[in-house]
């Protein structure tokens, strides 16, 4: 029974992630437009764009190789695999036992590396600049992310997300300074990894200020659609990750009845909605920073992650 429930929740979860990714992007765009006093596009506009792009034949540069053609699907598959492992409305999904935090981080890195390679494939300046900056940012974001994982693993004794989420949901550890510091670090890393303001501007039209958009400048048609969908999915993965770990209440426990799934779904939607609203507000009030300031921004996340781990040692040593 648990296995069956696990399978059903897993499938429902993947479908939910796939459907909700572009909606999340639409919601953030709408909120930002409203905050700026514009009417803004419909929430489903990203979905309409995606479907339109999927119907278009892509135009490849003359010297594009097979890697360039395969990259969008491969990068999307890596993000989707990570999305399948991050719980949303219910714990104890079929993929739970393999949902290792290091693996999830690795899958997201895999998608980033694939896109960075594809960006270099045409040999344009923009592709190179985007790939170079993206890999630089990740060189600072990943150590910070590992320190957050380190802190969580010290608390829960494992790097398995399902177990960590269940333990934190049970409230075993209460409120901890370490968790607060780790939350701030995780938010900063999430902003950088998803290319949001102040690290990167997802809506920019000036090539020199772009990072992610510069990487995918040569893509069109269904290839671009997959990449755009992947961007939405990745943001949703990060938001779900943060809610699962730091705001764990509401999710249905393993083997719970479908009624609790609905409650979990509502809780998850509310939490992601709050995060989306916070992100939209933050992006409206803050300006994008210079590229060479980003390492400092991520350096703070790094320091907070380190502090979180050390605080934990100190508190455990005193206890």
């Amino acid at each position: 029974m648990t296995l069956l429930f696990g399978l059903i929740t897993q499938l429902l979860h993947v479908a939910l992630m796939l459907a909700a990714g572009p909606v999340l992007i639409g919601a953030i765009r709408l909120l930002k437009a409203r905050l700026l006093g514009r009417t803004g596009p419909h929430v489903l506009q990203p979905w309409r764009d995606l479907l339109r792009l999927f119907r278009k034949q892509p135009v490849l540069a003359e010297n594009a190789s097979w890697l360039f053609r395969a990259a969008p699907a491969a990068a999307f598959a890596a993000i989707l695999a990570a999305a399948a492992l991050v719980p949303t409305f219910a714990l104890g999904m079929a993929g739970g036992p393999v949902a290792d935090l290091l693996v999830i981080a690795g899958l997201l890195t895999l998608s980033r590396c694939i896109l960075a390679l594809a960006a270099m494939d045409i040999g344009t300046a923009f592709g190179g600049i985007g790939a170079s900056r993206e890999m630089t940012f990740s060189a600072f974001a990943e150590p910070a992310l590992l320190l957050v994982i380190f802190t969580l693993a010290l608390l829960a004794g494992t790097t398995n997300l399902d177990v960590i989420a269940d333990a934190l949901r049970g409230g075993t550890y209460g409120l901890r300074v370490s968790l607060g510091l780790a939350l701030i670090a995780a938010v900063a890393i999430g902003i950088a990894e998803n290319g949001r303001i102040p690290v990167d501007n997802p809506a920019t039209h000036l090539e020199l200020t772009m990072v992610h958009e510069a990487m995918v400048l040569e893509y069109s048609g269904r290839h671009l659609a997959l990449i755009e969908w992947g961007v939405g999915l990745k943001l949703l993965v990060w938001m779900s990750l943060i809610t699962t770990i730091f705001l764990p209440f509401g999710a249905a426990p393993a083997g719970a009845s479908p009624l609790l799934w609905l409650a979990g779904l509502a809780a998850w939607a509310a939490k992601v909605g709050v995060l989306a609203a916070a992100l939209a507000t933050f992006e409206t009030v803050i300006a994008k920073m210079r590229v060479f300031r980003v390492p400092e921004f991520l350096g703070i996340a790094l320091l907070l992650g380190l502090l979180a781990a050390v605080f934990l040692f100190v508190s455990q040593g005193l206890a």
């Binding site: 999927f54 034949q57 892509p58 540069a61 045409i122 040999g123 300046a125 048609g221």
Partner: peptide, 23 residues
């Protein structure tokens, strides 16, 4: 993706000069 493209007559791809930001 392939099936959706086939159904909409958008299978395959075309080749053109690199866009390169209009360079």
């Amino acid at each position: 993706v392939r099936r959706y493209a086939l159904a909409n007559g958008a299978a395959g791809h075309r080749r053109g000069p690199a866009w390169d930001g209009g360079f």
